[in-house]
């Protein structure tokens, strides 16, 4: 495979990615603390009128199927879960990144967001089957963020998809990550990790981004979350993806150390992903014009 860019060029491109909005950044930091107060979240959201409007729109959307109208931000946050609010703020703040055409992976506009939202829903559902306590809202946010590195690499990978797939099919490279490393000297998990550090994301989210395809390599204290995102990413790909890297990764069979999942339960998670995706996606994107 012919090298398309150097690792240094990618790292430089990461430096040029815009920072998150102050409210998204603060929300991610605050909600990452186990002992945080919901009032801190409410105070941050109240200072951002666009985010307030968005959160109210989402909680009142058909996705949540409430029988009554929620009109105060305090109740909306209580209902949605404060960490889900962080995910919503993140989706808004980095909208251009999530919704750009994923040309390097032959994916259409919004493909990254679609995969990330499916992963987030799957991670939230998988949390139910964890053998140790796992916060479903953190899993959701990690799902939203996990593949953000692809948005950076995509610009450098034009017309490379066929080469990578031939490499995988012929066992020249082990998976799509190895193909990315051959082409640009860095894979999307590491590129995403570098971006996450730039954004000063909480460590748990950085680890989910860095190790979601190699969860066994994650520090032990983060492995539960990382395995959740690992499985969720795979389930999201099984539900359908229009990118060239879809299904081109290995499942780590040691997920059974953290999750008690039968084939039937996986099917139930897939059902929920498909069920929730359209309504949640509409709710999270229809109040804002996508900026590309």
């Amino acid at each position: 495979m012919k090298q398309r860019a150097t690792r240094e060029e990618i790292l430089k491109a990461i430096q040029n990615v815009p920072l998150l909005s102050p409210s998204a950044s603060q929300l991610l930091q605050v909600t990452a603390r186990e002992d945080h107060d919901i009032q801190d979240v409410i105070d941050i959201v109240k200072c951002d009128s666009a985010l307030t409007a968005r959160v109210l729109k989402i909680v009142n959307s058909v996705a949540y199927g409430l029988a009554y109208q929620v009109s105060t931000i305090d109740r909306a946050i209580s209902y949605l879960g404060d960490r889900t609010i962080a995910g919503i703020a993140l989706g808004d703040s980095a909208s251009a990144l999530f919704h750009k055409e994923l040309a390097g992976y032959e994916g259409p506009k919004s493909e990254l967001w679609n995969h990330d939202l499916r992963t987030a829903i799957a991670a939230r559902e998988i949390a139910r089957y964890a053998t140790q306590p796992l916060n479903a809202d953190v899993a959701f946010t990690a799902g939203i963020l996990h593949a953000v590195g692809k948005a950076v690499l995509s610009d450098f990978l034009s017309n490379s998809a066929n080469d990578v797939l031939i490499g995988i099919d012929s066992h020249e490279v082990g998976d799509y990550l190895a193909g990315e490393r051959e082409l640009v000297g860095i894979d999307h998990t590491e590129a995403g990790f570098e971006l996450a550090k730039n954004w000063d994301l909480p460590e748990s989210l950085q680890m989910a981004i860095r190790y979601h395809h190699n969860p066994a390599d994650a520090p032990q204290e983060h492995q539960l979350l990382v395995y959740a995102v690992h499985l969720a990413c795979i389930i999201a790909m099984m539900c359908g993806s229009q990118a060239s890297d879809s299904l081109q990764y290995h499942l780590d069979k040691n997920y059974t150390d953290f999750f008690d999942l039968t084939s039937e339960q996986i099917a139930l998670v897939m059902l929920e992903v498909n069920e929730s995706f359209d309504t949640l996606n509409n709710a999270m994107t229809d109040t804002k014009e996508t900026q590309i």
Binding site: L247, H250, L251, S263, I266, A267
Partner: peptide
């Protein structure tokens, strides 16, 4: 009916 590379086959919904 595609599949992921899964040594346990638990995830092989495509085959089912």
């Amino acid at each position: 009916g595609a599949k992921i590379m899964d040594p346990n086959n638990t995830f092989n919904i495509g085959k089912r």
